[in-house]
């Protein structure tokens, strides 16, 4: 897939937005350069006979990948889950206000 430079810049900006990371202009340019390299290289995959080839998402599945019984087991509990929260109140994580008054 070929992109124009403007299209690609927008694609990178959208990906950064969806990744939820703030980046400086310098970081953005380096990221764009790295993604452009991969996007160009990925065109080599178009030359491969991939039609009908199954995807590999796990090399051991399903032969060496038994499932375990679907049973409820003890979890870490609210107190432990909150131990390392940057901000907490009672049994809750504190986040900035989401719904405006």
């Amino acid at each position: 897939m070929k992109f124009s430079s403007e299209e690609f810049k927008n694609i990178v900006q959208t990906a950064i937005h969806n990744t939820h990371v703030a980046m400086s202009e310098e970081e953005f340019l380096a990221c764009q350069q790295e993604m452009a390299f991969i996007a160009d290289w990925a065109q080599e995959m178009d030359k491969l006979p991939l039609e009908g080839v199954p995807m590999t998402v796990n090399v051991n599945f399903p032969e060496n990948c038994p499932t375990r019984p679907d049973m409820v087991t003890p979890s870490m509990g609210i107190e432990n889950a909150l131990t390392q929260a940057p901000a907490k109140l009672g049994s809750c994580f504190i986040v900035p206000q989401i719904i405006s008054e």
């Binding site: 995959m45 178009d46 491969l48 991939l50 080839v53 995807m55 590999t56």
Partner: peptide
Amino acid sequence: KAAKLRTL
């Protein structure tokens, strides 16, 4: 495509 390439 990458996951299919992985199969190959």
